[in-house]
Structure formats: structure tokens, C-alpha cells
């Protein structure tokens, strides 16, 4: 779906595609600020804030960064990065969460 015939190999989209993406991001920005003032319990507040942030980031990656239209290998690289990020978080949090099971002085 190239927007211009002489550049059919590029990922150029219609202008409306980028404009709609921006509108969705703006709506999500308003929602996240609104949710921030709701005085939700901490676990719920952070879950809502992070869900909206992940949604926004995914929209930027897919539409603005053109991953949606990129090769399988580009998908793999982008996906691997976030997979590694999850490993880092999981191991770091598992460490801190389990420290009090085996108390060691100075921790």
C-alpha cells in the first residue's frame, strides 16, 4: 500500500494513517493523566498506568517505526529486545522478592 507509484518499495503510508495514529496516542495520554488523578489503590494505579504506556509504545513501534511493514528479521530483533528486557526484570525482581526468605546481614 505505497502512497506513490514511483516509490513502491518504501513503507510510506497515507497521511491519514499517521494522523490517526497521533490521535489515538493523544486520547491515551488524556486517559493516563485522568487515571492518575483517580486515587486508585497503588497496585491498580500502576497496572493501569503501565498498561496504557505499553499500549502507547506498541502503537509507536508498529505504526511510526514501521515494524508492522518490516521484514520478519526486523520483527525478531525488535521482539528479542523486549524479551531480554523481561528476563532482566524477572530475575531482578525475583532476587529482591526472595531476599527476606534467607536473611543475610547487610542486605
Amino acid at each position: 500500500m505505497a502512497a506513490h507509484s514511483h516509490e513502491e518499495h518504501t513503507h510510506a503510508q497515507r497521511v491519514s494513517f499517521y494522523a490517526k495514529t497521533l490521535w489515538v496516542l493523544m486520547v491515551l495520554l488524556v486517559v493516563t493523566v485522568w487515571a492518575g488523578f483517580l486515587k486508585l489503590p497503588d497496585w491498580l494505579g500502576i497496572a493501569v498506568a503501565l498498561t496504557i504506556a505499553v499500549t502507547k509504545a506498541t502503537i509507536v513501534i508498529m505504526n511510526f517505526m514501521h515494524v508492522r511493514f518490516s521484514s520478519k528479521l526486523a520483527w525478531l530483533f525488535a521482539g528479542a529486545g523486549f524479551f531480554w528486557l523481561i528476563i532482566m526484570f524477572a530475575f531482578a525482581f525475583a532476587d529482591y522478592a526472595s531476599r527476606h526468605w534467607e536473611p543475610v546481614q547487610g542486605w
Binding site: 493516563t32 493523566v33 487515571a35 492518575g36 486515587k39 486508585l40 489503590p41 497503588d42 497496585w43 491498580l44 494505579g45 500502576i46 497496572a47 493501569v48 498506568a49 503501565l50 496504557i52 504506556a53 502507547k56 509504545a57 509507536v60 513501534i61 511510526f64 517505526m65
Partner: peptide
């Protein structure tokens, strides 16, 4: 866009903080 994404996470975590 990556720089934008970092801010997308910094804003709720530092300024809004969730609950």
C-alpha cells in the same frame, strides 16, 4: 521514536506514579 517511547514510560512512572 525510541526516545519518545522512553518518555512514554518516564511520564507515568515519575509524574503520575500510578496510585
Amino acid at each position: 521514536h525510541f526516545v519518545d517511547i522512553v518518555w512514554i514510560f518516564l511520564f507515568p512512572l515519575l509524574y503520575l506514579m500510578g496510585g
